[in-house]
Structure formats: C-alpha cells, structure tokens
Design a protein around this nucleic acid. Structure first.
Length: 189
DNA sequence: GCCAACGTTGGC
DNA sequence: GCCAACGTTGGC
C-alpha cells in the first residue's frame, strides 16, 4: 500500500492508514492491535532493525475512486522532498513502521509497475505527533532503478521474496549494504 | 487487465 | 482453532 500525497505542513489525521486501518477498509476489519498473533514479535524478542524497504506504486491505480499512485517522483515533488507514509493496513507492516527511528534508512521500492525495483533511498524523519506518522525525506535518488535478484545469494531471505505482500519490511545491515552496492552495477538476472 | 498467491475474516 | 469465503497484492 503506497503512501498518500501529504506534506509535512498538513495537520489532518483523518486519513491516517496507521491509526485508522479499521476505518479505511470497512467495519468488518478489527483494529490492528487485536488481530491474533499480532504481537508475536515484541520489542523484547525481535531483533532491532534500522534499515527498511518500503513499497509503493508509481503507476496510477484506482482504489475506491482514489488514485493510489505514489512513485519516487511524487515524493521528490513534495516540499523538502519529504512526505508521510500512510495507507499501510497490514498489521505486520505497521508494527515494523512503529519500530522505525529517526535517521533510519529505507529503500523506496516501486512495485506493481512496469519496472519493479529500488528507485531511491529515503531517510526516516522525525515522528509527527499531529499525524501520528513518520515522515520520509529523500536524500538520495538512485539514477537508474534496479531490480533486486531473488535467486539465492545474500538476499535470499528478504521478505520481498519470502513474504511478497509485506509492504514495509526490515533489512539487515548486510542486506542493505548489498542492495546499495547493486546500484552501480548493470541490470542482472 | 488477468489471475495466482497470499492474508484476513468470521461462522462453526 | 479450523478453514471456506472473500479481499488484496503484484508480476506478468
């Protein structure tokens, strides 16, 4: 689920996908915290991540009459190249977002599009208490987006492949470094 | 735009 | 707690 286009200056909390997951998808859905097994990975037991991969859709797609398009160019176009990341409904993805801290790095991943792949690198900005959301800024736009290889190698455990539908996922430092090293290389299979 | 794979819901 | 039905994702 991609973020909506919202700037830092907006104070609206009405659309927060993080807080209002039950609202955005109708009354049948329970709040995230009450989903069974939702708290399996508690802060006590789970490893602490500081690198992330965030999926978003760069091409227009309409969901209930709303265009969910939010590609890296859309983030670039916002004031200070900074925007919040809402619209995340999956409880596991939201739990990962809650583990994020200012200064963490996150790949901007283009999904459900012609050329899926890493399109840029974001920095996690301070949490906004007005919106109960983290913001993301774009310090580094990768020149050519690239695909992440799935076949074995250092990235074989990526949630991108093992849990394909998770829109916010953690990376180990090793995975992060490896993905970053791919930027300079040619596309590969 | 299709549709297989996956995640969630809720009745039992 | 199981699992069928349903909704969503995402590569093609």
């Amino acid at each position: 689920m991609p973020p909506k286009k919202r700037t830092r200056s907006s104070k609206s909390t009405a659309e927060s996908g993080i807080n209002d997951a039950s609202k955005t998808t109708g009354s049948r859905r329970k709040a995230a915290g009450s989903v069974k097994n939702g708290n399996k990975d508690t802060a006590d037991t789970a490893p602490e991540y500081s690198h992330w991969l965030m999926k978003s859709e760069p091409e227009s797609r309409f969901e209930n009459g709303i265009d969910v398009k939010f590609g890296i160019e859309d983030l670039k176009a916002l004031p200070d190249q900074t925007g919040c990341w809402d619209g995340v409904r999956n409880y596991q993805a939201r739990n990962f977002m809650r583990q994020m801290k200012e200064g963490h790095l996150a790949f901007f991943y283009h999904s459900n599009c012609k050329e899926p792949g890493v399109a840029g690198l974001m920095k996690v900005d301070p949490f906004d208490p007005y919106q109960d959301l983290f913001f993301f800024s774009l310090p580094h736009c990768i020149t050519t987006s690239f695909k992440i290889c799935t076949k074995g190698g250092p990235l074989k455990n990526l949630a991108l492949f093992t849990r394909a539908r998770l829109s916010v996922q953690p990376l180990t430092k090793e995975e992060f470094d490896y993905i970053q090293s791919l930027e300079d290389k040619e596309p590969f299979e």
